[in-house]
Design a protein around this nucleic acid. Structure first.
Lengths: 241, 241
DNA sequence: CCAACGGTTCGGCACGGACCGAACTATGCA
DNA sequence: TGCATAGTTCGGTCCGTGCCGAACCGTTGG
């Protein structure tokens, strides 16, 4: 009869429509790596203007597929939860050629490199940035008792390592900056910048041609252990935030 | 880099697009009951013209979501396989209000009624039609040795039950007709029509107002058991084809 | 203060695709 | 044969929505 209540074809179709766009689908597949990506990174990855990315992200966030974390002028997004990730993986596994939610080798290694160590503005990020942050706290170079602050002892320790902090301008001495994962922080501000500059200048890390990824040298491993008590982030070391 | 191979956002989006239409979504949810539906039934169910239904079915079949079974002028479709059904159920379970892939009570009971017994053209279908067919074979009223044929004994048995078969026109004496499930057959042709006519005339089954569903009466249960050895299809009796 | 940069808003454009009616084909039955 | 019905094809219309550029906003750092 015409008055029958139809099953939720409406809602079902709406859900599917979220993924029925090439760009949004590309976003979601990229986000399967469970990292938090910035809007620009996704836009660049999917080859669309930032304005388009914004619109797509609004839809996906509004529908509860993604969550956002605002961090200064950055907008990090990631998959809402494990259920969503599973849904996307299930759907992706039905795609013809190969159940490939895995990516190309170069893509994987590039991601791993970025995840391990990279620059963020002018400071260190990635696993390296996060564990450096932890080490600085452990060694009482900075403390988190009220906000985040450089300790007098910390300033001496840094100076002994060859890193002098020149107070200048309005830039805060030290700031926390949200890492890619969206769960952990690394050090920014004057201190973060100074450490990064020194690490590059001293050959602790090497820049990579077309990327923000950094390569940690043997010298870097040694020196960072000596000055900051930093353990090398070998293999798949995991840190909880 | 611009030359990077993007993950299969393309195929992923195409898959999602299949479900991103209200009508196709309604079809798929309806088909979750695993029955084979005809194109007209789906069109009627989703309240769209048959021409639209045809187009949607072509897409879904072309994409491997549905399979079709052509039966005379009917086009039965059902979900391709269990994997597809699971995919749809997974997606449907993410739809907001309630993980409702179940349907309204009236809808369920109407389905059950139709599933149990109904007319198909002028003959009996549904569980009743299928088990009647089986009973007719068991009692050697018809045999399936070469095609399907009415036996001389069968013709006498039917006459004794008050059902006389008048050979007339070009309509075949007996035919098989694919049932809703797409797996089993019931009896059509002159014999099928005569049995159905007699069942209605004798009060073995009662028609239903706005539906092709039939209600089996106590008399019908008794008589069909007596004449055809038909066991009453109580409760959820399942028959394998 | 200014410059640089990440992100947003807005308006216009264009394309896809869902819808529908009407004519047509094919099957089943009299 | 003819009639009724299931399904298909075709053409036209219309709406949604993805895309993009340009101007704008807010944060960061100098």
């Amino acid at each position: 009869m015409a008055t029958d209540v139809l099953p939720a074809g409406e809602g079902f179709a709406s859900l599917a429509a979220l993924f029925a766009d090439r760009t949004r689908a590309t976003f979601c597949l990229a986000l399967l790596d469970r990292r938090a990506w910035t809007a620009s990174e996704l836009a660049n990855y999917a080859q669309v203007p930032k304005s388009s990315a914004t619109e797509h992200l609004n839809k996906l966030i509004g529908a509860g597929i993604l969550t956002e974390i605002r961090q200064g002028r950055h907008r990090y997004v990631r998959l809402e939860d494990a259920r969503i990730a599973e849904l996307i993986e299930t759907m992706a596994s039905h795609v013809e050629p190969v159940p490939s939610n895995r990516r190309s080798y170069t893509s994987i290694t590039r991601d791993q490199a970025l995840r391990r160590a990279r620059t963020c503005y002018d400071h260190l990020a990635g696993d390296l940035g996060v564990s450096l942050m932890n080490a600085l706290v452990a060694k009482n170079i900075i403390n988190l008792d009220s906000g985040v602050q450089l300790t007098p002892k910390g300033e001496q320790d840094l100076a002994r390592a060859g890193i002098s902090i020149e107070r200048q301008g309005t830039r805060p001495l030290i700031r926390t900056c949200l890492d890619w994962t969206g769960r952990q922080y690394h050090a920014a501000g004057l201190v973060g910048g100074a450490i990064c500059r020194h690490a590059l200048a001293s050959g602790w890390v090497l820049p990579t041609p077309q990327s923000r990824a950094l390569k940690i040298t043997d010298l870097g491993v040694m020196e960072m252990k000596r000055h900051f008590g930093l353990e090398p982030a070998r293999g798949e070391r995991r840190l909880q935030g």
